[in-house]
Design a protein around this nucleic acid. Sequence first.
DNA 1: CTAAAGCCTCTAGTTAGCTAGAGAGTCAAG
DNA 2: CTTGACTCTCTAGCTAACTAGAGGCTTTAG
Lengths: 140, 140
Amino acid sequence: MEINSLKIGAVAKRTGVTVGTLRYYETLGLIQSQRGDNGYRFYASEMVHQVQFIKQAQTLGFSLEDIGEILTVHQRGDVPCGFVQALLQDKIQQLDQQIRERVAFKEKLEDYRDRWATINLQPKPGEICPLIETLQPGVS
Amino acid sequence: MEINSLKIGAVAKRTGVTVGTLRYYETLGLIQSQRGDNGYRFYASEMVHQVQFIKQAQTLGFSLEDIGEILTVHQRGDVPCGFVQALLQDKIQQLDQQIRERVAFKEKLEDYRDRWATINLQPKPGEICPLIETLQPGVS
DNA sequence: CTAAAGCCTCTAGTTAGCTAGAGAGTCAAG
DNA sequence: CTTGACTCTCTAGCTAACTAGAGGCTTTAG
């Protein structure tokens, strides 16, 4: 076994991910391995760093697909930092959008909750729960 | 064909959902049907209302599982409004939690974005993108 | 009478990031 | 020399709410 040549379990231990996850990352093209005569995967020690990079990038909300693109840029020999900054800005905007949607939705629900406090809870014949049935259709 | 007896396509047209969705709702127990000699589903006309109820409840963010429980209460002969109010309160709290998490996360990302504006973008040997690699591990 | 439309069941695919298990080969320690 | 740890591939399952398609009946309109 050459120096700088780790089996999958060793990489798993050093990075804190499972061997299953490493194999999964390989199917996505996020990491690469050599194969020995026995079919075992062997990893250059830089792969430990690359897996740590992946985990770190995930904490920023990047998807594995995003991360794959970052690594592709890197493996082309380019510096992916500008791309990373653009991705981050996208994430921030998506988050902002989600926050605004959820705040508006929460206000709507609170409005219903408060209005329902005054509604008669006895369903008319054929009704299931008038709280829901008295909503105007299409209000979303 | 009896009065008040609709085929699945008629229910679909009246409610705006697809026949596939109606069959799916049936597998979940959200709606019920009788079968004719030919195997066709036949629906009482109240089922149109029940499907509209389901759609309306979905606009409040209720899952089909939630809605199934509401309908179960109703079919027991009870008034589900108290249960609906409790569910709504749950949804509001979940939303509030999600909003707070996302706001905090967004602030973290904005903080990174702003700090990155001052970082040298040239990776050292072995680095992929120092923006990500200089994050403290474990900061989430 | 025929063709189109409607209905049936069953299976599988969609998103994202894994996880679990079967069944089998390989390697290291005692 | 055996046993247990490690590795391999392949398949399937997880969440949620559907959607699409195959293959095959039944009904309806003209």
